[in-house]
Amino acid sequence: MKNWLFRIYMYLMKIGARFTKIRENKIVVLNGAGRSGSNGYLFAKYMKKNHPEYEITVVEPWPSSHLPLSTWREIGAAKFILTTHQPFKIHAKQVNIQFWHGIPLKRMGIMANNTKRKTDMRNAKLWQKNADVVCSNSDLYETLMSACCAIETTKYQKVGFPRLDALKHPALSKAQLLTALFKVQDEQAQIAIYMPTFRYEMEDEQIMAQIKAGNFFALPDFDAESLNESLKAKHQYLIVKLHPYEMQLLGMQTSHYSNIAYLNNDYLFAHDYDLYELLGNTDMLITDYSSIYFDYLILDKPIIFVTNYLRQYEQKRGLLLGPYEEVVPGICVKTQADLLAGLSAPDRKQQKRQYWLHLTNQLQHESACAAIYTLMANQY
């Protein structure tokens, strides 16, 4: 019932905004990616700094049923509508540039195990109708996206993703990041960041109970005190960035441990950062089934994969590439003991990282933001 009401609301608001005159220099970013590698938010920052002749409005969160009519009129006035999730526009004369929010690793749309055919077909039609440009950085990306969303090949433009610009040019130095999150100075420091996928969709109460109890890794032998002591002994620091739902479930905004820090969206919003503006000065990524690891490849730094719920995740939603343990360019761990061993071991996966980097990023230009601006200015 709520879905139907929301769709009616969206339809009525689109009608109300349709009579607004389009302004040639107006850009609206519909940001559904928050501050976790948001191409839309980062592109808006670039445009405000480098092209003040354009009028930029960032609408977030998106979609929302709480937007005032004035915001809808801003959307209706935009020549360019940039989206991080479903393609959207009000007028046929508007140009929708689809950024999306990651290279797909998890199955989605018509490829997923946990979606409905009717919904998948409706979403595929939205891509066909509303997406004018789909930003890309590789043939592999286009193949994976089209497999999931039935996108025509003519819509793709290999211009890259703004989030990778931020990853290559961090807003904070490593020392500043260490001071901001851990309140320490340590010239020997190694900073790891843990970013899992949204685990709630596995619908496993046991996993959620472990996270609520403080076991953010959901590992069978988790011991936070032991983990912290091991990190401390090796001058290692762990940033934990969970999905907002899991952070709320955890119930703690600050860590009680010297070498473990929680990074939440409140901090990012308060300091006007996107996560990717900090990520470049970390030394190691720990993840599970999140596609963030594809982006992290450009840094050529170690990646550890937590795979204790791999089979369950494959059954519930599914992955686009496999076998998983053979595909991923890093060691796979299922226990805290394995994780600690991985944090201590020298990295031997550089060649595999480079292999996957060449498959997932064929672009050589310095700035995706500049390439996207050029596309907008010259072709539209």
Score class of each variant (00 low, 15 high):
L144Y: 07
A150T: 09
P61R: 06
S255F: 08
L30Q: 08
K234Q: 13
T115F: 00
L285V: 04
M111I: 00
S138K: 00
E74W: 00
A171F: 11
K49L: 02
I27G: 05
D272E: 09
E187S: 15
E53Q: 07
H271W: 07
G34A: 08
R163N: 13
L164D: 14
T197V: 10
S146A: 14
S367A: 04
S146Q: 06
N96C: 13
N123I: 15
A209F: 04
S70D: 12
T282E: 02
I193Y: 03
A261D: 04
D132K: 00
I81T: 07
V306H: 03
R317H: 07
L319S: 01
E142M: 12
L357I: 01
L340V: 03
L178M: 14
F305V: 14
M208S: 11
K241I: 07
R23D: 11
R73G: 06
N137A: 13
Y373L: 02
G37R: 02
E201Q: 15
I211L: 08
L105T: 07
I372D: 01
Q206N: 14
N281K: 06
D274E: 02
G322L: 13
M47F: 13
V134W: 01
L249N: 10
Y9G: 09
L357N: 03
A345M: 02
F182T: 08
K49W: 00
S65I: 04
G251K: 08
F217E: 01
Y9L: 10
Y293E: 02
G40E: 04
I191Q: 09
S146D: 06
H358P: 00
I90D: 09
K118T: 13
P162G: 01
A78Q: 03
D295P: 06
S136W: 07
Q206E: 15
K21Y: 09
Q236G: 05
W62M: 01
L140I: 11
D186M: 12
E24Y: 09
V240D: 05
